[in-house]
Computed example of a mutant assay.
Amino acid sequence: MSVRLQPTMFSIACLIFVILNPSFSLGQEDPLKDPELYLKYDVKKGASLNSDYEAVGYWNGSVYGWQVTEEGNSVYTKLFYFEGMNIRSVEMQEDGSYVSLSREVSLYRDLDTGDILEAWSSVYTGVDREVFAVTNDPVNALLYPDSGMYAYTSQHSAFMGNFFLDYPNPLDPEEYPAFSSGKQYQGENIYKD
């Protein structure tokens, strides 16, 4: 699977936010100057320019449920933890683009024990449900200098881009009709770093 980044209204809004940020200085010279250098810098932040090197990314956090009470108040409940990792290599092409090849997995963990969840009892319904690890394999992309939006302030640089996803759904609707979105999985990853 390959995706190409496209700017969207969200990306444009993020760029406007960065420009309107008080730390933004119009008098500050942008050391990266052009999209090619921004893309190279962004690749180096999350991988390596050496295509033989495999970079490891890691993330973790908590998953919350959200309900609105009869009084109209929002109530958030921590449901479980998640954590994941990504292995990635990037290779520059003759035209100045990059091919990013990676795989990733995210797991869900029990709040009390930290064990990987294979089943989870819903705090809302009491019903036990099977839990699946997120196994994104592959997570490949073609990255071009014009595939995202870049900004520079005196304190940081930013890349904003969107990955539009469309591939066969691993959660087969025949086997999981109540939970599958259909034969194709369609989604979007929105990035700002």
Rank of each mutant, 00 (worst) to 15 (best):
S2Y: 08
L5N: 10
F10M: 05
I12E: 11
C14M: 07
I16T: 15
Q28T: 13
E29F: 05
E29S: 05
D34M: 00
Y38D: 09
Y38V: 12
K40A: 10
Y41P: 04
D42Y: 02
G46Q: 11
N50S: 13
D52H: 02
A55T: 01
A55W: 04
Q67C: 05
Q67R: 14
V68E: 04
Y76W: 02
Y81Q: 13
M85V: 06
S89F: 03
Q93A: 12
Q93D: 15
D95L: 08
V99R: 09
V99E: 12
S100D: 13
S102E: 10
S102Y: 07
L107P: 01
Y108V: 04
L111W: 02
T113A: 06
T113P: 02
I116D: 07
E118H: 15
W120L: 12
S122K: 01
S122M: 09
V123Y: 10
V123Q: 13
T125Y: 00
G126N: 09
D137G: 00
P138M: 01
V139D: 03
P145Y: 03
S154C: 01
Q155T: 15
S157M: 06
S157E: 06
M160R: 09
G161E: 01
N162E: 11
F164W: 04
N169F: 10
E174K: 14
Y176D: 10
A178N: 12
F179S: 09
K183S: 03
Q184T: 13
Q184L: 11
E188A: 02
Y191V: 01
